[in-house]
Amino acid sequence: MFTSQGPTLRELAVQALSSVEHGYDLLAPKFDRTPFRTPDAVLAPVARALGALGPYASGLDLCCGTGAGLGVLREVCTERAVGVDFSAGMLQVARESEPAASYVRADALALPFGPVFDLVVSFGAFGHFLPERQPELFAQVCRVLRPGGQFAFPLPAPARPGSWGYWAMLGFDGAMRVRNALWRPPFVMYYRTFRLGDVRRELDRAGFDVALRPLPELGERPDGSPRARLVVATRR
């Protein structure tokens, strides 16, 4: 699963027993050599879909990590691309991989911007927000978008009950709940708490009109439905 340049089992264990911020500071130098980095096979279809909706002037990568999603913003934004994350270690790596972007260290629940962005994207970060924090998160995104600006992110279809992926995510989330019940500080990361129905409802309450665009490059499920969609929420 990991390359020889990736983190060792001991390093992953130390990260998992740390806070979210400190854990990612520790993992940052080797993060791009793990399966946790959003793959180019996902980023490219998102960039093509947004290219058809844009162009946009300025874009923000929310919880940018090591900067994988900033390449998407560079493709679809004509003026500037900004990455925000609360891990100093991840931002340091991002600056090296995407030096043309700007970076701000901040909490996604307290964004230090006014309504200056036309596009906000995010990749793979929503598991770090418990469902009760989603209204707060979406309100922050709405606040930093200009009217008519868009919040876009890919969302995979849920794993079929009984499939390998279903049991893997169920087991991971169960292990994290046990870990957080027994150990402090908590490490919030769950795979099954970001459900489309709940997300659409909370985005609507935050002031967004929500549309779904299939990402056909990522394939179809046996019933013909897409394996992943791009959620495009437009600020009213």
Score class of each variant (00 low, 15 high):
A68E: 06
C64E: 02
T34A: 08
L9D: 15
T34L: 08
D32C: 01
R33F: 12
D61C: 06
A44R: 14
S58F: 05
P29M: 08
C64T: 05
S18Y: 07
K30H: 11
D32V: 01
A13Q: 12
V84T: 13
V76N: 03
S58H: 12
E11S: 10
A81T: 09
V72R: 02
A49F: 10
S18D: 15
L50S: 10
R48Q: 14
T66M: 02
L9N: 12
E75R: 13
L53G: 08
Y24N: 00
G54V: 03
A28E: 01
P45I: 09
A44S: 11
A52R: 15
G67K: 04
S19H: 10
P39E: 03
R48D: 15
C64R: 03
L50C: 08
R48N: 05
Y24D: 00
L70Q: 05
E79G: 01
S18K: 07
A57R: 15
V20N: 11
G23S: 09
L43D: 02
D40T: 09
G83P: 02
G67A: 07
E21W: 12
P55S: 06
V82E: 11
L27P: 07
L26F: 07
E21H: 09
Y56F: 15
V84H: 01
A52V: 06
G65T: 05
L43M: 02
H22V: 12
V20M: 04
V14G: 04
V72T: 12
G71A: 12
Q15V: 15
V14K: 11
D25Q: 07
P55V: 04
D85P: 04
L53H: 11
G83N: 03
V72S: 08
T8P: 03
A28Y: 02
R48V: 08
L9G: 09
Q15Y: 05
G65Y: 00
A47W: 09
